[in-house]
Design a protein around this nucleic acid. Structure first.
Lengths: 218, 218
DNA sequence: CATCTTATGCACTCAACAGTTTACTACAAC
DNA sequence: GTTGTAGTAAACTGTTGAGTGCATAAGATG
């Protein structure tokens, strides 16, 4: 157990290398063309690998798809986890929320996450388990994390958040709901400054909604 | 120019009938399988029509897809237009908003709209024009309509909405953002009562955010 | 070095599927 | 009732693309 990244422990380094280049090429191809539209010969060509190698390492197109997406999900999950971990720790509620808002919006609306979402939504009917899995591990994680942070603010009397899960949803979708919806259809990515501005405006709206319900607090 | 629904004016009634049954079958097939995954033979079989007829009436698979979706878009557009037309007319702000919220959420999260969204998002890379078109004509219309209603409330001093477009986004995504996102991945439709409850909670959050900024108003 | 494993290249099979051809039928209108 | 326009059924063409077999080369391992 040395420099291996995946579950590829003491296996032949050639296999590990093949896996890596194939997954990279396959990710790009599946993101661009969807499952049915993707073409194994092209993936092999782009990975500069013989088609046979793909069939040796993975069993077939569907397994390739599943394992490729499994890796993407791990990335997305890691990504989600480090968002908003340190929420609810300082006294600067407005500042913290604004900061998380901007980071959240930028992360979700950045190209890669968006393309992954498009792919999974498009294949949701064909691969419902993958879509479910993604939802639980990426957006779900973020929601949990946000709810936890908001709960901390609530307990410290800095916000009025009787239902942290609900408030987390409100926060997330005030911050990036509209741009996300537009971006899913747009193909052309949105301007980063517009996204950030909407995120800040969303955070402010959230504060207005969840702060002054306890006006005479100290 | 009599009882024809489409642009099929004085044409052969057989053609009109063929169009209709083919579009119906094609809609279902494309929604279920996507563009690449759909199969013209199956569409013909399900429409109980000869495959040749499809190629006579439409030119080929792509035109069939485009015209099928064009019809779906018209439906979606009509649907969107009659949502929230009468917003901002009475003095019962809270009541009106709660009502629109529930109807909006039910409409967007109802099966058909959701499946159409999945299809268009999945094909956004292959048919960017269709996705753009849909966005402008359905969600875009709803946003405009909401913004207009909120602007009326603002002008009558019942709400504080300096930026109606922004507020409309906030309203829409407070009301149905989270359920919509979940539903896009879920394949299994969400429980209607849960959706309605979230919609009401969203409307309340919106009111808290956009009402009391002008507290001493009458 | 000897051997075992993996990768390559290429030809191949087989099935699915878009689109066409043809020979025939049904109906509508004059 | 003849003529023109659609629709039907089924076989056919051509292509694309998933997956396989095999002989050979390259690299890992002992």
């Amino acid at each position: 157990m040395g420099s291996a990244k995946d579950g590829s422990e003491g296996l032949d380094p050639r296999v590990a290398r093949s896996r890596a280049v194939i997954v990279a090429a396959a990710t790009e191809h599946f993101l661009r063309n969807g499952y049915v539209g993707a073409n194994v010969d092209e993936i092999a060509a782009e990975a500069r690998v013989s088609k046979r190698t793909i069939y040796n390492v993975f069993g077939g197109k569907e397994q390739l798809f599943r394992e490729t997406l499994a890796e993407a999900l791990v990335t997305a999950e890691r990504f989600s986890r480090q968002l908003s971990v340190e929420l609810g720790t300082t006294g600067d509620v407005a500042g913290e929320l604004r900061d998380v808002a901007v980071r959240l919006a930028a992360a979700v609306l950045g190209g890669p996450v968006l393309r992954l979402r498009r792919l999974l939504i498009g294949e949701a009917e064909r691969f419902p388990d993958l879509a479910d899995d993604y939802y639980a591990r990426a957006p779900g994680r973020v929601m949990d994390s946000l709810a936890e942070g908001l709960r901390r603010f609530h307990e410290r009397g800095l916000l009025h958040v009787p239902e942290p899960e609900l408030a987390a949803e409100h926060f997330a979708f005030l911050v990036m709901g509209a741009p996300l919806d537009r971006a899913l259809f747009a193909a052309r990515p949105l301007a980063a400054d517009h996204v950030a501005a909407r995120a800040r405006a969303g955070a402010e709206a959230f504060l207005r909604s969840y702060m002054n319900a306890a006006p005479a607090r100290r």
